[in-house]
Nucleic acid binder design. Structure first.
Lengths: 222, 222
DNA sequence: GATTGTGAAGAGCTTCACAGCT
DNA sequence: AGCTGTGAAGCTCTTCACAATC
């Protein structure tokens, strides 16, 4: 089993995209059980050579003249991304963002199990979110340890985010998904991924403002 | 006013971060009206030389031995990011994600105005979201044209995302913020920024699975 | 002394192009 | 003929290092 493991960060991002295409193939039409690098690339907006490099980076192999086996590639990809084992996660902050994340059907399906929800506001504690009674922050340490949760989701206001993240790290968490518009400073042994709406909006404004002047458009009633 | 405009994509991302630090400075303590590249870099998790390169990329200048003027840098940054003029946006999809985005206090503050909300489900049409009555999709074209909205927010299920994005482009939109876990294929004159929870979770699983075995930890406090 | 601005070196990522396999 | 695998080239981004400036 080749496991050459040198997957760069940009590559990991693209592997997620390929995985989606493969899942659609497995779920929906099983017209063929082969897929080419060109096809995967088209779905993800990436060149075919890039796809082949990415797949080779974790030891996936195709057949020249034929392509890759959908099922085998799917399974290999999940393994490479660390999705072959289930992950247990706790959510801190029972507001809109946390609920929106949990509402994604993929959350459970992909092997992410929510094991507890916490919030600082006593008015929210006790309410149910995604089937879990919201607990006070004072329970966090013990709940994380007891459940063996490896991931923490930070969905609190920006000025609380660092403290919450620190608490999660102290509780022994391995990775943090940060929804607060603030850079977290955490020890190197903890993985951090940020989902930042504010930054996304600003990036959009920036890129839209670079586009050719929208003078002669919205013309034809297309 | 120098405007050397060659801001790379990674640079734009970091500029957003610097902007946040500057805003915090302006809002909160005005202990000093200068800031150094090292200080900005610490907040954003970036080297000081990188900060200086980034700031130089849009013509901002500092004083050797002193630093940058907070107010001037803030204003210059906003201009560089296209945030000096207000943006009008429409939201398609009145579910959790859309509401979570609008709940961000920054949304309105930063100069993004929501002008209309649409949804395909007739059960939702007519309800109020963020102060706007949800409209049926059939109103989209006209509403976008009438309001002059430049941005569209796609917060619908993945299998509807491409159609919705196409409709937005036909209506004359300049940029799309895509929350659906699917790559959109749009003409080059339209900016696209994706916020993808699924990909973020998978990236987190990947990075967390690479971290050193969590054997002997939960020791000294940081 | 502190800090900027920047050329040059370094690192990393993407694209090209084509040999080789089916 | 179709497609993979990959060395090499090309490109972009980051870090280094230091002269110039305040």
């Amino acid at each position: 089993m080749p496991e050459r493991n040198r997957i760069s960060k940009p590559a990991a991002r693209r592997l997620s995209q390929y995985l989606r295409t493969l899942q659609a193939r497995l779920d929906g039409d099983a017209s063929t059980n082969r897929v080419s690098s060109r096809e995967l690339g088209e779905q993800a907006g990436v060149a075919d050579a890039q796809v082949r490099k990415d797949l080779a980076s974790f030891g996936a192999g195709g057949q020249p003249g034929v392509g890759y086996q959908v099922r085998a590639l799917h399974d290999g990809l999940r393994r490479a991304l660390g999705l072959d084992k289930p992950w247990r996660a706790v959510l801190v902050g029972a507001g809109n963002i946390g609920r929106a994340l949990l509402a994604y059907p993929r959350f459970g399906e992909e092997g992410f199990d929510l094991v507890a929800v916490f919030d600082r506001a006593s008015a929210v504690v006790g309410r149910r979110v995604a089937g879990h009674a919201v607990q006070p922050m004072s329970n966090l340490q013990e709940a994380v340890r007891r459940s063996g949760a490896q991931l923490g989701i930070v969905a609190v206001p920006p000025d609380e985010a660092q403290d919450v993240a620190d608490a999660l790290v102290r509780a022994g968490i391995q990775g943090v998904l940060n929804f607060a518009p603030r850079a977290l400073r955490l020890p190197a042994h903890v993985a951090v991924v940020a989902v930042d709406f504010t930054e996304a909006l600003e990036r959009l404004a920036f890129e839209a403002s670079l586009k050719p002047t929208p003078s002669g458009r919205s013309k034809g009633h297309g």
